[in-house]
Structures are given as C-alpha cells and as structure tokens.
Design a protein around this nucleic acid. Structure first.
Lengths: 207, 207, 207, 207
DNA sequence: GATGAATGAGTGTTCATTCAT
DNA sequence: CATGAATGAACACTCATTCAT
C-alpha cells in the first residue's frame, strides 16, 4: 500500500513538473530533461512511470478531464435562475483560473494531435454542453427560461468564459482584466439572461 | 514590375505552403523541408524570402492581422439592430471559416511565443473589441441597445463565435455542427439581444 | 573520484580527437561528426562536454597557453650564456615540435577570430617576450650580454624559431630540415650571440 | 586589346575584393556573395573569371609570389654591409606591410591546403632564402661577413621579420609596435651583424 | 558577357530515449 | 528502483555553384 502510494506520489510529482514546463514552454519546446530537473529526479526515471513524453501530455489531459467531470456535478435547483447562473459562471471562471497551467499545456497541442483533439472535445466540451443542456431543460420546463437551442447557447457561453479568461490571464492590461470577478459575472449574467435590447418599460435591474 | 510581381508571387506561394503545413502539423512539427516540398521549391529558396522559420510564422500573423483589420470596417447604421447583429455574426463566422488554416497555424504558438501573444491580443482581439465598442455605443445612444460593459460583452460574443466555429470545424459530429449557419446566427442573435429569460408578456420573436 | 576522472578522460579524449582533426583539416573544414568518429563516440556526446564546436577550439587554446606557461619557468643562471641560450633554443624547438598539432589547429583561426587573436598574443607571445626580457636583463646587468631592446630581439628570436620549425615540419625537403637539431641550435646560438660580421682578430668559436 | 584589358581589369577588381574579404573573414568564412558585392558585381560573374572559390585563393597566392619575386632583385653590392642589411630589412618590412591583406588571406589556408603549402614554401620562402644565400655568399667571399649556414640564418631572419610584423599589425599595444621602423631596423641590424654578446674592447656602434 | 534566383548537399546542434551501473 | 551518460536521428540553416534569361 505504501509502495503504491509512493509510486502514485512520484507519478504526481512528475506530472506537476510537466504541467509547469509545458505551460511555460509549450509541449514541443519542453524538454524531458527540464521536467526531470523541475521534479528533482533523473530524466531516465520519468520513463519508469510514463512510456514517453507524449504519455505525459495524455496523462495531463486525463487529469483535466477528471477535474472537469468533478466540476460538472453542481446542480442546484433550489436557487433562482440568476443566482444559479452566477454560481455556475463563478465556478467556470474559477475552474479556468485554477487549471490555467493545464489548459495552456494542452492548448499548444490540441490543434494538431488528433487523439488529443478528440479527447478534449468529446470528453470535456461536449459533456459540459450535454450536462448543461439537461440542467437548463429543467428550468425551461419550469418556464424559468425560454426554450432555446442548447447546442448553440451552451458553447456560446463557454466560449465567452474562455476568451474572457484568456484575456484576463494573458493580457492583464486589457480592460476585461480590470473588473472584479463579481462585476464580470454580474454583467455576463445580465447578457445571457436578458440580452442587449433596451427594455424601457421594465427596470430589469430592479427586479 | 514583373520581377517585383514574381517575387511577391513566390513569397505568397511559400506562405500558402507554410499555412497548410503549420495548420496540419503545428509550427514546431512542421519542417522547412516539407513546406518547401509543398511549395514545389528547394528548402534553400525559402531563405531567400524569409530570414528563418519563425519569420514565416510572423508573416502569417501579419497577414491575419491585415485581414482582420479589413474585416472590421463594416459599419452599417442603416440596418435595424437585429439585422446588423446577424450580419456581423455571419461575417465573423465566415472570417473564422476562411482563415481556418491561418488560425490553426497560429493557435499552436500563440500560447508560448511572447511576441506572437502580444501581436495577437493587441492587434486582433483588442481592436475587434474596441471597434465593436464604438459601434455599439452608437446604438446605445440611439436607445436601440441598453447600456452595457463593452469590455465584457464583446469578448463574450467573440469567444462564443470562436468556440462554436472551432466545434463545427474540429468536431463535425457535434450537434453544433448540424445546424445551418442561418439557424446558428438566428439563435445567437436571439441570445445576445434578448437573453434566455422567459418573457411571457412580450412575444419577442414576433418582434 | 572515479567519475570525475572518467569525465576528465572523456573530455581529454575528445580534445585529442579535435586536435587531430583541426590540425589536418583546419578548424572550419573539420566536422563535429569526424571529431566524434575519431574519438570513437557519437556526435551528440561532444555536446555533453563542450557547449559548441568553438568551445573545443578555445579549450585547445587554453591547453596551449597552460603548456606554454609551464615551459617558461626555465631560469638557469648557473649556466654560461651560450649553454643557456642553447638550452632555451632546444627547449623552444621541442615545444613547437611537441605541440605541432595544437599550433596548426590554432593557426587556421588565429587570424580571423578576435578572441583567439587576443588570447594568443596576450597570453602566449607577450609573456614569452616578457619573461625572456626579465631573464636577459639579468645577464645584461652582469655584463654577460650587451644592452639591447628586448621588445625587438625577443620576437626576432621567437619568430626565427617558429619559421625554422615550420619549415622543418612542413617542407621536409628544404635544406633547413636536413640539419640535426644540434647543428641547428649551434648555428642559431652563434647568430644571436655574435652576429654575422667577420671578426678576424678574435676566434670566437675557439673561446 | 581593349576587350582583353577590360577582362584583365574585371579579374583584378574581383581579386581585390577577394583579398579584402579573405583578409577580414578568412578564406572559409568569406562568401562568394560578399566578394561579389564588394566588387560591385553579381555572384555569377565571378565564375566567368574563376573556376571556383578556391581558384580565387590560388590566384591570390600567385599574385603574392609574383610580387615577392619582384622584390627579390635588389642586389646592391655598392653599399657597405650594414647599410645594405638595413635596406633589405626595410624592404621586407615594407613588403609585409603592403601585402598584409594578401598574407592574412593566405595565412588561414596555408596550413591545411597541400597545394597552397607547397606553393608558399617552394615559391616564396625557399627562393627568398636561396636568393639571400647567393647574395650573402658574395659578401662572405669578400670577407665582409663570416661564413655561416644560410639555410639556418636566412629563415631565422625572415621569421624574425614576420613575427615582428605580425605583432606590430595585430597587437598594436605591444611594445614591439611602439618603435619607429627606423629604430626597429637599427636594432635588428645590430642583432644580426654583431649578436648580443658584450664586446667591451670594441665600441661596435662607433665603427 | 552579365545576372541573380534557385538549388540541395552538408553542417552544427538538440533532445527523446535507452541501458549499463 | 533510480540514475545520467551516451546515443543518433532529425532539423534549421548556409552557401558554392549553376543556368535560364
């Protein structure tokens, strides 16, 4: 048991180093030597736990998938729509923030590595949309939301969160980075719930 | 004149080959040899037109920036809000579709190449947001749109378009890829103009 | 200790191969591949011990400098002038002979590599002259030698030794190569001590 | 005739550019392109006058040989020994100074190019020694000089001149570079005619 | 003759991976 | 288990030389 635990720890230690180096240099520029150095071990040791460099990346993708899956299970039908949406937005923003390194590490290879592309979309993006659909349909059924095409709206919301997060992380001078997360979520919730049209007759904000 | 034209053509020919190979393999995996082969020339010839492999990438980034700038100038204050938004959405979706290769080529390096990161955000994303802001504020002034934080909403819209485009291009089996562009734009316009809340009293769709 | 020794040996082994190849082909024509082959190792291994090809050359220059410095310390004020000069000439001839490869290796690059030029003159030629000066001035003080400009005479002597050595090594058919080293030193000592003028009155050789 | 003259001029123009570039960069680092640029012509043109890059070097060696031969013919039996030696030393120092570029250009390749080595020694160094011998033997016959081994003394003198020249040209801070040529020749003549031994009884300088 | 764009063989260097210790 | 020295295939880039114009 302790041995297995130790092996797990060693694996974890290597993966953490890999995240750091991949995030900094990108997958291709990252060298096994540097990952080993950052993990405080010899390069050869990595090959006792992973078949090759690419397996490191796939393991990281796996880790991201597992975390994303964990984060999906936050159904809260007890809250009103707006509070719930805000909760979800906060949650997703936090997810991106906390898995920044992992996301950057994968971002360099997702576009050209077929297996990774498939994994990323099938096991992260589509489940997010799918789960989101199920939940939102419930609200629709209760007439708290109007009927809509989840396959369009969900990616639109996720994409928005992603780009805003990227902007805030990679261009800290951009105006999008100046807002507090509170204000950001407020504005997004308003957008996604009420849109941009002017509604003179109803002070929506006062609701 | 013909000489200059020939040189320009040769440059263009190389860049096109580079886009193709970068998009397929990613910047790092792409070899100068393959780019040359795809362009039907010898590897050495590339170095008569570009200082090194990286200059190819930067030239492509430049090309993208120039195209993005061209695409920005579509002010149409004569249209009603919804038609105009639909026009813009169509336009952006087309831009991503048409510059797919270029975007994929850059996507692998944007995250780790500082100069590229800066260029991409400062010369593409921020101007898109900036120009969008100017236009939308005009509509706000005319009370056609409610006041909103452009620095949040614009990235949210752009991010939505990007992720939906990516999904449609890279995961053609996903439900988001099943819709016609017409339906897609319709749904997005609805989302961004009116949000998801149910408004029993006003038949928004009836306009 | 053994490890350090092994590393030192490996370095030495590479340097020896480098001397051989540089001497044969000159620095520029020498390929890392050939140096590796001559050392019986893979090309990549060289880069575990030297940053690049040029570092090989600089390491060789260092080696020569160290050897030259060691060879400088032969003060022998117990000998009479002629014997001492003969000793020094023998010593310098031997130095050139023994470091032939090293000298040829450097000879190709000294003329165009600023750092190497500086090193060679400042750390070899000038110290040789400087040390020679100190020693000879002592003899002058004892009236065993007449006063003279060391900055002219020392380079003249060193240059003479160099060219004669080069002739003997590179043009073995030349008359200068036909003499025994004994005869050579004898003739040089006579030249540098008594000059070429005829001195009928004094049988200098009979001394 | 004019055509032939033009061709000769063009050849000369190329060779001058080659001397400059070879002297600056060394033969190997020099590029045909840069030589062409310095000559104000296109790279291809060089190949109308020379078979390849190496022929440029050989042509330069030829030029040096021709100049050295011209410089050899200065017999002056009308002068006294000291004046004549001084004249020769001045002449040789000037030769090195004036052909500095040419000598540097060749210096990088002489050591590894067999044909060049042979040419240099057989057609320059050995003739210099040979011609010198003939002349000096005449002085010996007239008892103005003592008998000596020309094959040792001549290279010794030439080598001395070469190293001093090199020092003066490449290490302008060295003490050897501080003297006027007049003083330099004076000191060398003294060395080669009278040696370094002290001769208290005869004020040689007063002679 | 003159050009200079094109060539492509050849180089230094990197780095994932192996394996003897 | 762990090491890290050694490997060698692969790559970006250079440049002497050619040849169509």
């Amino acid at each position: 048991m302790t041995e297995l635990q130790e092996a797990r720890d060693r694996r974890e230690q290597i993966l953490q180093a890999a995240v750091a180096v991949f995030a900094e240099r990108g997958y291709q520029r990252a060298t096994v030597k540097e990952i080993a150095a950052r993990a405080g071990i010899a390069p050869g040791t990595i090959y006792l736990y992973f078949r090759n460099k690419r397996e490191l990346l796939l393991a990281l993708a796996d880790a991201l998938i597992r975390r994303a899956a964990d984060a999906l299970l936050t159904f809260r039908s007890d809250l009103d729509v707006k509070s719930h949406l805000a909760l979800i937005l906060h949650d997703r923003l936090r997810f991106v923030r906390e898995n920044q390194g992992l996301l950057r590490a994968l971002a360099t290879e997702i576009w050209t590595d077929r297996e990774l592309t498939a994994q990323f979309f099938e096991q992260i993006i589509l489940p997010v949309i799918g789960t989101g659909s199920i939940y939102t349909q419930e609200r629709v059924a209760r007439s708290e939301l109007r009927p809509f095409r989840a396959e369009v709206v969900l990616p639109a919301v996720v994409g928005g969160i992603l780009l805003i997060s990227v902007l805030r992380l990679m261009a800290p001078d951009s105006p999008a980075a100046a807002l507090s997360e509170e204000e950001l979520v407020e504005e997004l919730a308003r957008l996604y719930l009420h849109g941009l049209c002017s509604h003179p007759e109803e002070e929506w904000d006062a609701r």
